[in-house]
Nucleic acid binder design. Sequence first.
DNA 1: TTTTCCTATGAAACCGCTTTCACTACTCTA
DNA 2: TAGAGTAGTGAAAGCGGTTTCATAGGAAAA
Lengths: 337, 337
Amino acid sequence: MKISPQHTIDEIAAAAGVSKATVSRVMNGTATVSDERRKKVEATIKKMNYRPNLNARKLAGGTGGSIALVLEESTEEFFLNPFWKSVVEGFIEKASSSNLHPVLFFHSKSQSDEALVDALVRGNFDGVAIFGWHRDIKVLEKFVPNNMVVVFGGNQGSSNRFTYVGVENIAGGKLATESLIEKGCSHIAVITGDLSVQSARERLKGYKDALKAAGIPIRENLILEGKFTKESAELALAKFLKKGIKFDSVFAANDVMALAALRTLQAHGLAVPDKIKLIGFDGSDLARTSSPTIATIAQPSHELGSMVAGNLVKALNREAISNIQLNLNLIAGGTLN
Amino acid sequence: MKISPQHTIDEIAAAAGVSKATVSRVMNGTATVSDERRKKVEATIKKMNYRPNLNARKLAGGTGGSIALVLEESTEEFFLNPFWKSVVEGFIEKASSSNLHPVLFFHSKSQSDEALVDALVRGNFDGVAIFGWHRDIKVLEKFVPNNMVVVFGGNQGSSNRFTYVGVENIAGGKLATESLIEKGCSHIAVITGDLSVQSARERLKGYKDALKAAGIPIRENLILEGKFTKESAELALAKFLKKGIKFDSVFAANDVMALAALRTLQAHGLAVPDKIKLIGFDGSDLARTSSPTIATIAQPSHELGSMVAGNLVKALNREAISNIQLNLNLIAGGTLN
DNA sequence: TTTTCCTATGAAACCGCTTTCACTACTCTA
DNA sequence: TAGAGTAGTGAAAGCGGTTTCATAGGAAAA
């Protein structure tokens, strides 16, 4: 059987009777080409089944058309949290509609940063979106090639090389806490996220800010350290309940933990919201479908994913991109009545 | 913060006081370089944190260091079948030890061939191993770039562009059938694999060959069409049992189906091996751990994966490679006593 | 009609590597 | 001691694209 030859741009140019520059321009739409030649070139490309060599293209400064979506977490955790699902969907939708091929990457905690970068470089991606990163950003700055665009999902203010699409976590934490205060709560327990993650720290700061503004003392024994997971919240809350410390409400730093808290409180005979009021964070399906529904701070998750992809697209088109902060807002729920 | 610059081979060469050719030779070990210079270059590379640009490297004819492992099946099916697990392990072991970074790819039936090739090309792989392919090979020949090595796991004799590492499926099918005949069986039912897959057809041919050689007539109503899955075997066998056709033994084209057959026969009160003898195919853990243990034809699964990777490695080193056929042998089991 | 400004286009430079080729400086063989 | 290898090396030629630059030819402005 004959092996179909791999054509080069020169062959296409020759066959179409134009220069390779023109072929390139037709393929990339980077300059105006007369209708007549454009059609001829397009027909030739199709007829000869030409596919440009991506290595050559990228070497010369072009793009390859695929981007990576890195989720810095254990795979499992992502699938247990509908928030991430929504983020990923938003991302993929936007990327695909911009003709970029998204490839998912799970970066487990056991993997080294170098290994990740290595995989990314080998994968020949034009750009990379990273969600949930909470390691040293310098490693990325050191190893990521200059021609690889990186956009963070989540605030990563410390780098002037990479941009991020973040959410107003501090304002969100404050908003959540304020809504409890408004309901007359004054002994508000908070279940934090993994404090090695910036967003967790920010939400906690919002909590403290709200208390301060309301003139309520910050009690360290009301601050329970969770890790964004169901188990961590259950554990922290169970331990806290044993101590018998007075509290009238709970702010959980994400919905997964809020749901865990709801169940734990109920199991301990603490009626929600009659005895204890509760608010979560994320605005995920979890909050909407529980019984009672959980009040929560809505993160525009779909939009978050989509805007990260959007920034990536822009950057690949050589448009300037900058950091973006998305607003959050309160979603009422049965746990706050 | 300062962005660490992306060095080029020229800069390294200059810093080390040698030509770029020498740097290249040190990196790739493609020619002898004096000890003194080699050390100097290596030190410089390390100090300056140099990483060669993979696009340039590949464009110039070098290798990128990553290979794809394509599994042409639904993901689920692979994980339900220990045979594949072993194949994949063998592959990854060999690839890793040869410094190739393997990336798994699942090619679901709904995906087009073009989409697969597109993903492979975009992924910048040096080579691709494909297991379980049973589509038109011409599509691959048409779209796969010349510089991408492809090795099939499983017989794919029709191509002179790609090589394969296969197993003696016909001989295996014959061996299985013969071992039943030896035990005095003459009415041997066979549960075939998905007959759109070559290996399934070959095993069936082996079955027929053995019958012919023994002078036993081939009865079409003893040929039950399965699809390599548990469900398909259960269904086919249940339907067959209802008909009340006389049979004294079963040859299942893989162990997953053999196990399903064993359970089904037992459920119908047909003692194995007392009333019905049974033999499978694969030599997987399934056969070893069932009760009674299932006689089976051992495929060297680990070796299969490993040899495919080995061929890939060889090809990338520009060594000639050729098709390989692995031998099969009988593993005794309780279902054949 | 003449000058100016676009538009469409090809030639050529360049991206960062690998590899061939030519050449030097030795080490061997006879 | 002369001729033949051989190991080590750098210059330069690609690999197949993209992009800059220069230019020809028309249209618009004068």
